[in-house]
Amino acid sequence: MAETAPKPRIRLDRKEVKAGETIEIKSLISHIMESGQRRDPQGNIIPRKIINKFTCELDGEMVFGADLEPAVSANPYFQFKIKPGKSGTLKFTWIDDDGSKIEATEQIKVT
């Protein structure tokens, strides 16, 4: 399968909330999530290559995260909600088995 650079997508249901209100976040990244269980036509195991970690931070503070195993579907998708206590920058990071990091950011405002 042709390798393309993983492309992250983030969608927030709103970027401005009152204190105590929630923001729903949907995140998706294009990635093959090769499980390391499959074999090529010659019978060799195709080496594992997955996104093994996802984090969502607000101004450097961990809000939500996940450690992924090969049993997460290709193009890992997460839907979660946060209740931000302050305005700031949401930073989303995906970490690949090869060590590369893919990042995306969104500004949010709490009034």
Binding site: V72, Y77, F78, K81, K83
Partner: peptide, 9 residues
């Protein structure tokens, strides 16, 4: 500061 709920595939 997260809601205790998550969805994935």
């Amino acid at each position: 500061s997260a809601v205790p709920e998550a969805n994935t595939r």
